[in-house]
Computed example of a mutant assay.
Amino acid sequence: MIRYYDHNAPFELESGAVLPALRIAFHTYGELNAARDNTVWVCHALTASSDVADWWPHTVGEGRFLDPSRHFVVCANILGSHYGTTGPLHTDPATGRPYYGSFPAFTIRDMVRAHRLLADALGIRKIRALVGSSVGGFQAVEWAVAEPERFGRLALIATAAKASPWAIAIDETQRMAIEADATFGEPRDDAGMAGLAAARAIGLLTYRGAQGYNLTQQDPDEYPARHRAATYQQYQGEKLCRRYNAYSYHAILNAFDTHDIGRGRGGVVRALERIAARTMVVGIATDMIFPPAEMRRLQAMIPRSEYREIYSPFGHDGFLVEHERLDAILRPFING
């Protein structure tokens, strides 16, 4: 069940803008033990929610790496999201109307500062393991550098210490699609939906890659009325529009591009040297957003770390699909 923490005080963003108050939506699974040392914190990716059991199937359950019978599993919805935490569709107290496009710019560090507020409010000083994939991995590595003493273990899956030019270019292409929708910018919840659908279709090409599409979207032998790959793209765009909004998507893409663990810390190498947690870095052999070579370089810069790689025909999205392979790596690592 979704829960909320209301931080009824100003929340200053890295940009200098201030949110008058901050609401954080979150889910928990299992119970915090008497020693308060059994927390496993999950940082979610772009359009996911705090409900890990929903968006990361077969990972939450007894005998899995997110095991509520052993661990107190926590996931907080990120700043700017559509799923409960303060974002563009929330009411701006200054105007009495939703922020929409006027929601202030925020960064990955701002997301992590919100996580830290929630952890403190829950009375969690030490976190046994911090787990993050993709944009969730951005948050996880940022938090592990910001508060190295808080974490015992760190799992980074298909992610990076800094947003690469390639990843930023992917995001900009999606933003261009949203901004090409003439309704984007209008003060209504459903503004920019055609642009959002196109952006999602663009993103999916990089999430899945050629192998994933060629495996699952082949046309039948007869002359098709419509290509399966084409209808799949349209369906996925429409599906996101039913559950999300263009303002949050656009804002989180912007936040994605701010990720640089070395900013203000003397560079990436010096920043990563601060990580005290034992770390597992997991790459996906077919990931075109965070290729294995980049994942290996990330692991090489983190003390007390090891690298594992899984194969999936589904590219970056393999972290959502290959739950058995991930479980074989992360369950013994987290349980330690």
Results as ranks from 00 to 15, higher is better:
150 R>E: 02
188 R>S: 10
199 A>S: 13
185 G>N: 13
230 A>Y: 03
212 G>L: 07
204 L>E: 09
162 K>F: 05
168 I>E: 15
179 E>S: 06
227 H>N: 11
158 A>I: 15
233 Q>G: 09
232 Y>G: 07
161 A>M: 04
154 L>W: 09
195 G>S: 10
177 A>N: 09
220 P>V: 10
226 R>H: 14
202 I>G: 04
176 M>C: 02
194 A>I: 15
191 A>S: 01
202 I>L: 13
209 G>P: 08
186 E>M: 10
185 G>R: 10
159 T>I: 12
202 I>P: 03
185 G>P: 10
231 T>M: 09
210 A>P: 03
158 A>E: 12
172 E>L: 11
218 Q>V: 11
166 W>H: 07
220 P>S: 12
225 A>R: 10
208 R>L: 12
214 N>G: 15
202 I>A: 05
202 I>Y: 07
229 A>F: 08
174 Q>G: 03
188 R>N: 11
221 D>N: 06
166 W>A: 12
201 A>W: 07
201 A>Y: 05
219 D>N: 15
207 Y>E: 02
223 Y>T: 05
227 H>F: 14
157 I>N: 00
181 D>C: 07
218 Q>K: 10
181 D>E: 15
150 R>F: 02
163 A>C: 13
185 G>Q: 05
159 T>M: 13
199 A>D: 06
150 R>P: 00
207 Y>L: 07
156 L>Q: 06
166 W>M: 08
222 E>M: 09
227 H>G: 10
231 T>C: 02
167 A>Q: 07
194 A>D: 14
230 A>D: 12
148 P>E: 08
210 A>C: 02
220 P>K: 14
205 L>V: 07
214 N>S: 15
177 A>W: 15
229 A>E: 06
199 A>G: 08
185 G>F: 07
213 Y>W: 14
216 T>H: 14
232 Y>I: 12
197 A>P: 01
152 G>N: 05
152 G>T: 09
216 T>D: 15
212 G>Y: 00
171 D>Y: 02
168 I>D: 15
208 R>H: 01
204 L>H: 06
184 F>N: 08
230 A>Q: 09
201 A>P: 03
187 P>K: 01
173 T>Y: 04
198 A>W: 00
225 A>M: 14
227 H>Y: 13
152 G>L: 06
195 G>R: 10
168 I>T: 13
208 R>C: 04
186 E>G: 09
205 L>K: 02
162 K>P: 01
199 A>M: 12
231 T>P: 00
168 I>L: 15
203 G>H: 01
207 Y>G: 02
200 R>Y: 04
180 A>L: 08
229 A>T: 02
219 D>Q: 13
173 T>H: 08
191 A>C: 01
156 L>N: 11
223 Y>C: 02
197 A>T: 01
199 A>Y: 12
165 P>E: 00
223 Y>W: 04
150 R>T: 04
153 R>Q: 04
212 G>N: 01
221 D>S: 12
